[in-house]
Design a protein around this nucleic acid. Structure first.
Length: 364
DNA sequence: AAGCATTCCAACCGCCTCAGT
DNA sequence: GACTGAGGCGGTTGGAATGCT
């Protein structure tokens, strides 16, 4: 049954993994692979035990999977996030929200859990303006480095491989990433179908963007750029621009509509700006375009989206069946805009044109 | 030095989606 | 189409480490 525990809670071990457990799991997977079934993996490990490991791996399959993916898998990096990585994380968070697995896919060696922790403990506070001391200084950071080094080396020792001193040191060095590595794949994972937002999926990004953009009473500096018109103070404009660039690169390189799963960032940002400015934050051109396509002002079309994630069929004026099919083709927010192109032979081309148009308004 | 507060992160929990039947 | 099991994901938590007073 979905959601049911994958194991008998009373009989499996929980809590931190011991070096012995790590060694058992790592050794088995390196020799035999996962076999495509994590649930049965602990049992398989028990059957192949040698004399030196009389006890099986008394862990649930999910726990094994998590441990492998987040810690034991080769080429995993922990800590030491570079500024480039921080930038990418922030930009992608603004673009797609808390989809950590997608963000992690853009940062080789990083796990979704690591990025999530990094965001929650550092980046979020930094962006939201909570003052912090330089995290690279202080006892805690130093101790963390020591812990990390110790863990790395003890792991290697468990596996019978003691890294050379030079190798040990390099494990703590900040990785040197190219500025925007491999970003064209962020939306292109065929497994990543559109998923309806659940819970308050947009809530966190709503708060963040409102904070960045200033609220109705926020003291927001204005400039000639659309990003600042949308309410972004200069320190955060580059994040906004970067998020657009990331999405744009995805779109251009694939030829597919990269926004099948999520609203265009401009749309989200525009909606938040609308909320933040009480509906007066939009240029008349964009408002006219929305009205021309939907018969409704941009405030009505976009404002509703941002608070609720999805628009209702009643609001965007299409039938439930049409809406169902369009859910697969484009995010709900675009339904009223792109529906006028539905009859054409080159539907995707027109969608891209429309997106270009929207982006044009966003970057002018 | 002691005690409380805060930070950090590994691991767990529960929900959702998908594939197989 | 309904059901089931497994994988995957994001939110949350427990507790150790560290900071602060």
């Amino acid at each position: 049954m979905a959601g049911a525990p994958c194991y008998d809670k009373s009989s499996v071990k929980k809590g931190p993994w011991s070096p012995e457990e790590d060694a058992k799991l790592k050794s088995y997977i390196e020799k035999h692979g996962t076999g495509g079934n994590w649930i049965s993996l602990p049992g398989k490990i028990g059957k192949m035990l040698t004399c030196s490991w009389r006890q099986g791996l008394n862990r649930c399959g999910k726990s094994c999977r998590l441990r492998w993916l987040n810690y034991l898998r080769p080429n995993i990096k922990h800590g030491g996030f570079s500024e480039e990585e921080d930038d990418i994380i922030c930009s992608l968070y603004i673009s797609i929200g808390s989809r950590w697995s997608l963000i992690a896919a853009q940062l080789p060696g990083r796990t979704d859990n690591d990025i999530k922790n990094h965001w929650n403990t550092k980046l979020k506070k930094r962006l939201l303006g909570k003052p912090r001391k330089d995290p690279s200084k202080g006892r805690r950071a130093a101790a963390a480095s020591c812990r990390q080094l110790k863990a790395k080396n003890s792991k290697a020792e468990v596996n019978g491989v003691l890294p050379a001193p030079a190798a040990r040191e390099t494990t703590l060095q900040t990785p040197n990433w190219p500025h925007q590595p491999g970003l064209s794949t962020v939306y292109l994972n065929s497994q990543d179908q559109y998923r309806a937002p659940h819970k308050d999926q947009y809530g966190s990004i709503t708060k963040l963007l409102l904070k960045l953009g200033g609220g109705p009473s926020g003291d927001v500096q204005r400039s000639n750029t659309q990003s600042s018109q949308l309410g972004f103070p200069p320190p955060y404009q580059h994040l906004y621009e970067n998020s657009l660039n990331l999405i744009t690169s995805s779109s251009c390189s694939s030829g597919a509509n990269p926004f099948n799963e999520r609203p265009h960032p401009l749309t989200v940002l525009a909606g938040h700006a609308l909320q933040a400015t009480g509906g007066s934050g939009f240029g008349t051109e964009l408002d006219e375009m929305f009205h021309c396509n939907t018969g409704k002002p941009a405030a009505e079309v976009l404002g509703g989206l941002c608070g609720e994630g999805k628009m209702t069929s009643e609001r965007n004026g299409i039938s439930p069946s049409e809406r169902l099919s369009w859910n697969k083709l484009s995010p709900p927010v675009y339904t009223p805009l792109v529906s006028s192109y539905q009859e054409t032979k080159h539907q995707q081309h027109h969608q891209r044109c429309l997106l270009e148009e929207l982006r044009h308004f966003g970057t002018q």
